[in-house]
Design a protein around this nucleic acid. Structure first.
Length: 210
DNA sequence: CTCCCGATAT
DNA sequence: ATATCAGGAG
């Protein structure tokens, strides 16, 4: 089985396993998703979702975040980790959104990655989850790990992995594939202890220990 | 490449 | 004790 067959088979099997796979960050509008996604760096969605209800009650608009007191914002997001960088990113990002985009989150990759604290991964999440636009594939730690284990790529750099996956997977699956790999990375193909015996991909995975 | 960083599971 | 968690900037 070549890489393209393996990639498409994996997507097919994971769709059966996780029929409701989707973004697990809680948000009600695009700017909330931007904030939640910035917060999710090197943290879990579960932890971010514990913070955001109070955060979004306190800061209701992009302007509220743009005008936030930095130290106060830091305290409000502390438990997500990397809190000084994230507070600065959120404030500067929303400042740019207010000043350059009239408070609306842009809908193109080119514009999104210019926002402070927003890289390709975050931009892909926003485009996919908020606007249903498949501009690329969101590559996070789980996607990096599983794509390598499945030998869909042999690169460690996120942009290279994204390019490799985009060549193997049809565009209609670009948004869902990240969610599928992340769900599977959390529940079965766990970083520290992969449960190959329980894995629906163990027949096609070159790294399977079964 | 390093740094940023608290919470959780092992 | 240590690895890991929907990364991005310098």
């Amino acid at each position: 089985m070549d890489k393209k067959d393996r990639a498409r088979k994996a997507v097919s099997l994971l769709k059966e396993e996780y029929p409701d796979s989707r973004c697990t960050l809680d948000f009600k509008n695009p700017h909330q998703l931007v904030v939640a996604t910035i917060l999710s760096a090197q943290s879990t969605d579960e932890r971010v979702n514990m913070i955001t209800p109070a955060l979004f009650k306190k800061y209701k608009s992009p302007r509220d975040f743009a005008e936030a007191d930095l130290e106060e914002l830091q305290e409000n997001i502390k438990t997500a980790g990397l809190y000084r960088n994230k507070a600065k990113s959120i404030k500067n990002c929303m400042k740019t959104v207010v000043e350059e985009y009239n408070g609306k989150i842009p809908k193109t990759m080119e514009e999104l990655v210019k926002l402070p604290g927003v890289g390709r991964k975050t931009a892909n999440v926003i485009l996919g989850a908020a606007y249903n636009i498949a501009s690329g594939i969101a590559v996070d730690t789980h996607v990096t790990r599983l794509a390598n284990l499945l030998n869909l790529t042999n690169r460690k750099e996120a942009p290279k992995i994204e390019k490799d996956l985009m060549e193997l997977i049809p565009r209609k699956d670009w948004i869902i594939v990240s969610h599928l790999l992340i769900d599977h990375g959390r529940k079965v193909c766990i970083a520290r202890n992969p449960r190959c015996h329980e894995c629906v991909l163990n027949k096609i995975c070159p790294s399977s220990k079964v």
